[in-house]
Design a binder for these strands. Sequence first.
DNA 1: CATGTCGTTTCATTTTATGCAACATGAGGT
DNA 2: ACCTCATGTTGCATAAAATGAAACGACATG
Lengths: 299, 299
Amino acid sequence: MNIKSLHHFLALAQTLHFGRASEEANISLSAMSRHIRQLENELGVPLFTRDNRSVALTPEGSAFETYARETLSRWDQLKKELSDSSENLHGEISLYCSVTASYSILFDLLNRFRPRFPDIDIKLQTGDPEHAISRVLAGDEELCIAAHPASLPKTLYFKPITKSPLVFITPINPNDKDIPTSQPKDGQHWAQVPMILSQGGIARTRVDQWFKTLKVTPRIYAQVAGNEAIVSMVSLGLGVGVVPKIVLDNSPLAQRVRTLPVTPTLLPYELGLITAKRNLKNPLVEAFWSVVDAPEPLL
Amino acid sequence: MNIKSLHHFLALAQTLHFGRASEEANISLSAMSRHIRQLENELGVPLFTRDNRSVALTPEGSAFETYARETLSRWDQLKKELSDSSENLHGEISLYCSVTASYSILFDLLNRFRPRFPDIDIKLQTGDPEHAISRVLAGDEELCIAAHPASLPKTLYFKPITKSPLVFITPINPNDKDIPTSQPKDGQHWAQVPMILSQGGIARTRVDQWFKTLKVTPRIYAQVAGNEAIVSMVSLGLGVGVVPKIVLDNSPLAQRVRTLPVTPTLLPYELGLITAKRNLKNPLVEAFWSVVDAPEPLL
DNA sequence: CATGTCGTTTCATTTTATGCAACATGAGGT
DNA sequence: ACCTCATGTTGCATAAAATGAAACGACATG
C-alpha cells in the first residue's frame, strides 16, 4: 500500500470508471487497472465488482474508501504539522552551569537566545561547577557554562564568553587587625592576612600560584566550597577572599565588601560555553553557539 | 510513503542503529539508509540526526514514530476486518416478485437461503407480476421470480424453479345454471360457461389458445387483474376460472372452489428465477442461484 | 453480425530498488 | 601521529517493478 495507490483508488471509487479515473489520476488505464488489482491482492478481497459495462464498489471497497480517506488526510495533516514545526528551530537542549553563572552569564545569554529561538526549550541543571565538564564528557548534558580549565579534554570545545578578573575582597568592617584596608606592602604582611579561599578549582590554583610568585605561604583562615560563600564570609569580616569579579557583581553582599587592588593582578577567569565537539553539528547547539557569537557585548 | 517504509522506519527508531535495523528488516544497510532518506525527503524534515557514532530521533522523527505506529495498526486492523468480512458472502441483493410468489415459492426459497447465507440481506419488492421482467431489464432489481414469458429477452436468464399446472376451478355453490360441476362434454357446452379470466399475461394466452383448439369462443364473464381475484370471484359462484394451481394452494378461499378436470390439460405455468445475464457473475446472485440448484425438491 | 465501449493482458521500455563494494568520517587504541 | 574498527553514505551494475501502447476479450447495441 502506498499513498499513490490510495489516490488512484479514490479516483476510481468516485468515478466508477477506469478510463475517467485514470485520466483524473494522470496515469494510463492499464496502470489504474493494475493498481486496483494490486490493492485487492494485498487485502485479499475484491474492492470493485467489474463487468465490462460497469464498475461498482463491493462492501469491502466501501470500507476501504473510508480507510483511504482517513489515511490520506492523516498523512497530509502530518506533513503539514511537520513542515510547520520545522520552520523554526525547536527541540530541547540541556545545559549545566553553576548557580552564579545562572545569575550572571546565563541571564544575558537567555535574554538573547529566547527571542531568536523561542521554540527551543532549555533543560537547565545548576550545580557545582566542578561537575560541569565531567557531565558534558559523559553526555549527560549537551552544554555547560564553565571556566576554561587548566587542561581541556580533546573531545570538548570551549567558546569564551567573557573574562572576569579574580579580585581580592576585604570586609568593610574588618573583624581582625590583620585584615588590611589597602594593599599590603610586602610578602611579610601578606603572610599574616587571614585568607578565605576556594577549596579547589581554578581560582584556587591561581591564588596559590600568585602567593608562590610572592614567595609567601598564605595564612589560610578558611577553605570554602563555592564562591558565594567566600563573599559571605568576607562580609562578616573574617578575612580576605579571592573571587571572580562576576561573583561579586551578582552578590547581594557586594556592599559589605570592598575590592582590594593588588599587584600583580591575577590572570582573569575565562568563562565560556563548553560542549562535546560532536555536538557542534547539532543544530540546537549551533543555535546556542551562534548567540554567543553575536556581536553584542555581553558585559 | 508505503507500508514497508514505515516498518523500516520503526525498526530504526527502535534500534537507533542502521546495521541492526536493516538486519531486523531483512534488507541491506544501504537500502535502509535510502529508505529513511526518502521518507525525510518526502516529509521535508529530517527524522533522525546521525553522526557516524550515533543515531537519534529528531522531534519530528518522534512525531512520525507515533504516526507510523498508528498507521500500521490501522492497516492491519483493516486487513483483518476485510478478510473476516469476506469469509462469508455478504451484501445486499434485490428481488422482485408477485405477492403470490412471495407466499409460495419465496417462502421455501428463503428458508433455505437464509441459513446458508446469513449475511446476505434481501431487499424484497412485491408487486404486479407484469412488471417483474421489465424491472430486471432496467436494472432496478437484480432478480425476480416470475413465470417464463412467451419470449424472454436475450439479456435475461431464466432458471426454472417449479411448474404449476393451470387449473380450471368452479364454485362449490354455483350461482348460475351454466356453471358445470363436471367437464362439459363438448364445445357447445363450453361456449355457455361464464369464464373468469386474467386480463392478460401468460395464463390468459394459454386459455385463449386452449379455447381456440376447441374452436370455441368462450363466454367471458369477467376479466380480472390478479389471479387471487379470480379465485375470489369463482368462490362467489360467478363463473369458472383458470389459475395456476400454486395460487389455489395458497389461497384462503381454496375450500370454496373445486378444480375441474379438463382435457386437453393446459400447458403448465413455468415459474422461475430471472436475472440479467451480466448479474450471473455477481457472487450474491450466484448464491441465490445455487439455492435453486439445490437438490432438495421445492414442492 | 458489425460496431463501439471498456476493462484486462501482453510486451517492450523506462524507472526504481537493491546489494555490493568503495568511501568518508570519527572514535579509540597503540 | 597513525592504525584500526565501527558506521553511515554513495557509486555502480544488476534485478525488480511500473508503465504505456497495443492487442485482446467480453458484451451491449444498432
